[in-house]
Computed example of a mutant assay.
Amino acid sequence: MIDKANSQDSLIVLTEGAIITALAMGLSYVPHSTGVSSVEFVYGLIPMSIYALRRGLKPGLMAGLVWGLLDMFLRGLGGGVLNPLQGFVEYPLAFGVVGLIGLGSVRVQRAIRDGKSGLGLIIFYSAIGFLAKYFLHFIAGGIYWGSYAPKSMNPWIYSLVINGGSFIANMIMLIVLAILLNRIFKQLIIPRN
């Protein structure tokens, strides 16, 4: 009986991960430019954050990895992949580390169960995942995308501005949505099973 319950739980986690990954990928097709060159909102980070906090580190990492592979094959091969190493760093690896948000799963769920908002913890652990993602993009930007920097600008500074700007934009988006969704965190983050 225990094996059947564990396999059902695993199937639920896997199914949720597939749905969240599909949602994140679908949101990639929504226009998301801020008007500043290459600084973009990545709407899929929000459902990925919720999933990683709901299910933990390993499912979060796996869902991020699959999202990165999908994004690479469906969108990146059209011009976002310069070579295999850069493609690996900026797609499966950078999207996968978003799952580091799952490091806070137990603490966030405990806070919510204890009747606390968990808002500060959600923002903190989301910042870890977002920062890891944009740090990898920063490294790849300095190494591989440097030729796209304005002629008078150091490629590393350019990468820092673009990827740092994207990190800040996405953190602002997360904070605004976290404040708006604060009342329903229990339904979003605490699994029923």
Results as ranks from 00 to 15, higher is better:
16 E>I: 10
16 E>P: 07
17 G>Y: 02
18 A>D: 12
18 A>K: 11
20 I>H: 04
21 T>Y: 00
21 T>C: 15
22 A>T: 08
23 L>G: 08
24 A>I: 05
25 M>P: 00
26 G>L: 13
27 L>A: 07
27 L>W: 06
27 L>E: 07
28 S>N: 14
28 S>K: 11
28 S>D: 12
28 S>E: 12
28 S>M: 14
29 Y>D: 13
29 Y>V: 08
30 V>K: 13
31 P>I: 11
31 P>D: 13
31 P>A: 11
33 S>N: 14
34 T>I: 10
34 T>N: 13
34 T>P: 13
34 T>D: 12
35 G>Q: 10
35 G>I: 04
37 S>A: 15
37 S>G: 00
37 S>V: 13
38 S>L: 12
39 V>G: 10
39 V>R: 09
40 E>H: 13
40 E>C: 14
42 V>S: 06
42 V>H: 11
42 V>Q: 10
42 V>D: 05
43 Y>D: 00
43 Y>S: 06
43 Y>V: 03
44 G>F: 03
44 G>A: 06
44 G>M: 03
45 L>D: 11
46 I>E: 01
46 I>W: 10
47 P>S: 03
47 P>D: 06
48 M>N: 14
49 S>P: 00
50 I>D: 02
53 L>N: 12
54 R>W: 05
54 R>T: 09
55 R>H: 14
55 R>N: 14
55 R>T: 07
56 G>V: 10
57 L>K: 09
58 K>W: 08
59 P>C: 08
59 P>H: 04
60 G>N: 03
60 G>L: 02
60 G>Y: 01
62 M>K: 11
62 M>N: 11
63 A>K: 02
65 L>I: 15
65 L>H: 06
65 L>Y: 07
66 V>W: 02
66 V>D: 03
67 W>I: 05
68 G>K: 01
70 L>P: 01
71 D>P: 03
72 M>H: 05
73 F>I: 09
